[in-house]
Design a protein around this nucleic acid. Structure first.
Length: 478
DNA sequence: TGAAATGTTGGGGCG
DNA sequence: ACGCCCCAACATTTC
């Protein structure tokens, strides 16, 4: 009997187009598929609450899929090195396969695992989470990129990703008894209160859900993506972010699928593929600047005169700022674990510029509440809006929440969906209810300050204050 | 992947 | 008919 091989699951919870799994199966050896919930307190970006909900269901789905292939998912909790060591000792496994991750904590762990076991057993790391490895895309001067467009061009020049590979038909499972935790014992799901009770209405974690979203996107929204991707009131995006995050679908599966349809939808196809390259770009930045999630890419922003404000932060978190488009976004996030990307920019701009609250506090809230919370993308998004990132929006670019609402939610349907107390307000005032005449408010059944808050800041004054703060920063630097 | 302030132009009202 | 003003509408600059 051959020694077993350990397939250490990371963020690659899929059967299709999984190079690590396929390579493991190809060895014809018994496979031990193990997921380790690493709870090292030294990981300052440990998985957030909404992501735990997703992970629970995703592991459940993956467990079914691997069972159908004849395998079995082993669950372990604790220090990854210790758990791997235990399994190696218990089973005599002499190979360890896994898919590469890129977060600073994850890379460090992978290196430690490699160093710890490589003399003793075969340790193999596979790619599959990105379209391009962060090290492979370099400027002419052999530097990492700091600007998106040249990075994008460089990726296109590097050639199309290779074709996805088919799933294995079956695998040889390691037959001897090996202990596994029960998924339910991990308590990844919220109990009291169960704030995730509505997530099920919106999401189907796992590989099937991912493919469902992708094919729906292709048949419905895909052709209009370039026009509708900024419209939170319609389904104009693919909603694949969480599936991609957990590796339930690979970026090259998505890439190839879109490419195959691109002749029908040239503009939309390109716009969408561009977004996939943004994902690579975020990882490119994270790998080369590991402080990216914590510190402004442009260090001078450490001296920005922020005005942290617990109460205002809470109003923002609860969707009670008095600006409907902001509140709708924050409530969509709370109810569904997700927010439309256009609205993410609007709420981020509001927190950073209207409230002058440090971007890291918004980043943390997103980290805990998004089912697609992703260290690289989240950091890149917040730094972009704050104006302190690589290739970021200039600081003086301040979103006007009323205009953004009128432009991207023209009928107000998005606002009415998430702020039911405003549902009878006519569209003229739906993005600025404080301007509505008394008779309009009363016939809509709204008492301002009671049913819906007055704006917590005057945007026009807040904008001036933000610009002054920016001037102050420049003055400090002189 | 902005918005506001400022500048320019041209048609129409009107003395 | 002419000059003047007003002010959309659009363009450019500034933050």
């Amino acid at each position: 009997m051959q020694n077993p091989l350990i397939y250490w699951l990371r963020q690659d919870l899929r059967i299709h187009d999984n190079p690590t799994l396929s390579a493991a199966v190809k060895t014809d050896r018994p496979i031990i598929t193990v997921y380790i919930l690493d709870q090292n307190p030294r990981d300052k970006w440990a998985i957030g609450s909404a992501s735990r909900w997703w992970l629970h269901h995703s592991l459940n789905e993956f467990s079914h899929s691997i069972s159908e292939l004849g395998g079995r998912l082993i669950l372990r909790k604790g220090n990854a090195i210790e758990e791997l060591d235990n399994i190696i000792n218990e089973t005599g496994a002499d190979s360890l396969y896994f898919t590469r991750q890129y977060e600073p904590y994850a890379s460090r762990l992978e290196k430690q695992v490699h160093d710890r076991f490589c003399d003793q057993i075969e340790v193999k790391r596979f790619k599959g989470y990105l379209l391009h490895e962060p090290e492979d895309i370099r400027t002419g001067n052999d530097q990492p990129y700091k600007v998106f467009t040249p990075f994008y061009k460089s990726c296109l020049k590097a050639g199309s990703p290779s074709q996805p590979i088919s799933p294995p038909e079956s695998l040889a499972v390691y037959k001897k008894k090996i202990s596994s935790d029960l998924l339910n014992d991990w308590k990844l799901l919220p109990k009291q209160p169960n704030w995730a009770h509505q997530f099920n209405d919106y999401w189907l974690p796992g590989e099937n859900g991912a493919h469902q979203h992708l094919s729906e996107f292709i048949t419905h929204a895909g052709s209009k993506y370039s026009i509708l991707r900024n419209r939170p009131d319609v389904t104009g995006t693919s909603r694949l972010s969480a599936h991609l995050h957990f590796g339930e679908i690979s970026p090259r599966q998505v890439w190839t699928t879109i490419k195959n349809y691109q002749h029908n939808i040239p503009d939309s196809g390109e716009a969408y593929l561009r977004q996939l390259i943004w994902r690579d770009f975020s990882y490119h930045l994270l790998v080369h600047w590991p402080d990216f999630p914590d510190k402004p890419f442009r260090p001078e922003f450490d001296k920005f005169p922020w005005k942290p404000n617990k109460k205002a932060l809470q109003k923002w978190q609860q969707g009670q700022t008095g600006y409907p488009i902001v509140d709708a976004g924050m409530r969509e996030l709370w109810k569904t674990g997700w927010m439309h990307n256009r609205v993410r920019m609007i709420v981020a701009s509001f927190l950073i510029k209207d409230l002058l609250i440090p971007w890291q506090q918004g980043e943390k809230w997103f980290w805990d509440t998004l089912v697609d919370a992703n260290l690289a993308n989240n950091a890149a998004g917040w730094q972009w809006v704050a104006g302190c990132g690589a290739d970021a929006a200039p600081y003086f670019r301040v979103f006007n929440p009323v205009l953004q609402g009128e432009k991207f939610d023209p009928q107000g349907d998005y606002v009415r969906t998430w702020i039911p107390e405003l549902k009878s307000l006519p569209k003229k005032y739906i993005h600025s209810p404080w301007l509505a005449p008394d008779e309009v408010l009363s016939s809509a059944g709204i008492t301002m300050g009671k049913d819906y808050p007055q704006p917590i800041v005057d945007h026009s004054k807040a904008r001036d204050r933000a610009l002054e703060a920016y001037q102050e920063l420049k003055a400090v630097l002189v």
